[in-house]
């Protein structure tokens, strides 16, 4: 990254920082997500149990001091499995969303800068992708490729990039004819540098907001696919799989379904709050409006 690029990014970060710091929703969402990340990192290290080791003599035990969230039908500690599940869910959401962002941003930039024909072609592709209900498409891709976590990541990455392409294309088209981009072009700046220095920083905030909101959606969809049996396979500790495994014990051991459900919900709430807060904080109109009110 050149010095000028670094300066451009720093200028933007300086502009966002006070908004991000003072936004309560971001703090709340960040707190929830941070807590989950700590649980995912530290939980497995401090737990005295292994997530897959069976202990049939203590199967289906209710919450006790030894097992705060009880045990499952194979005697495994539910709390330990939840912490391992947090690793899987968070990692999966981050990886799939990052791939979505990469594909969507590339296609959006290509569409906005590549001329009329490429734009029309890529936007039709976007329309086709958006024509499928997302989970149905992911379900079919994951099913055809074969049930596994890796294939869920592939399926969820392939499915959700279109909204990024639209957002990026729209943002670039909005500034394409602005004087700073035009003058840069007139100076003969190579396209790659133009994209890096002027276009990417401009699309960063809408993409960041969308990606944060998407992390929750991806975590939810991944849990749904695993629940249906297409994602993580037993004995892997994954929240959707844990709910599927607990459904036969709904009456006798309801904690098997409730605990992972609460974990999924908290994760999605955290990402949604973070996304909502970032949307408020990074929206240029919103920032200007607040500055006007402050002065």
């Amino acid at each position: 990254m050149s010095e000028q690029n670094r300066l451009e990014w720093r200028r933007r970060l300086d502009r966002w920082r006070p908004e991000i710091r003072t936004n309560t929703t971001i703090r709340l969402g960040g707190g929830v997500v941070g807590l989950l990340a700590i649980v995912a990192l530290v939980g497995p290290l401090v737990s005295p149990y292994e997530p897959t080791t069976q202990a049939l003599e203590s199967r289906l035990q209710g919450p006790t001091l030894a097992h705060p969230l009880g045990t499952d039908a194979l005697g495994r500690d539910v709390a330990t499995r939840l912490t391992y599940g947090a690793r899987v869910s968070l990692a999966l959401a981050v990886v799939a969303t990052t791939i979505r962002v990469a594909i969507g941003t590339t296609i959006g930039l290509l569409a906005a800068t590549g001329g009329r024909f490429i734009d029309a072609l890529l936007m039709r592709l976007v329309d086709v992708q958006l024509a499928f209900p997302g989970l149905v498409l992911a379900l079919v891709i994951a099913g055809v490729l074969g049930p596994s976590l890796r294939n869920v990541v592939i399926a969820l990455s392939v499915v959700g990039w279109a909204s990024y392409a639209r957002v990026v294309r729209g943002s670039v088209l909005a500034i394409r004819d602005r004087p700073f981009v035009q003058s840069s072009k007139l100076y003969g700046t190579p396209r790659r540098r133009l994209v890096r220095r002027h276009l990417l920083p401009h699309v960063a905030s809408p993409v960041l907001v969308l990606a944060t909101l998407n992390l929750g959606t991806v975590a939810l969809a991944a849990a749904g696919l695993s629940y249906l049996g297409l994602g993580a396979q037993p004995p892997t500790a994954e929240w959707g799989t844990m709910i599927a495994g607990g459904r036969n014990y709904l009456r006798s051991a309801p904690w098997l379904v409730t605990a992972p459900g609460v974990a999924i919900m908290l994760t999605v709430v955290g990402f949604n709050l973070l996304g909502d807060g970032l949307r408020d904080a990074l929206d240029p109109d919103h920032i200007d409006d607040r500055k006007r009110r402050r002065t």
Partner: peptide, 17 residues
């Protein structure tokens, strides 16, 4: 916010329960 963040299969089981 809770409604949009709740996994529907989980809510289904809670209602069933």
């Amino acid at each position: 916010l809770i409604g949009v963040s709740m996994p529907n299969f989980w809510l289904g089981y809670l209602l069933l329960l």
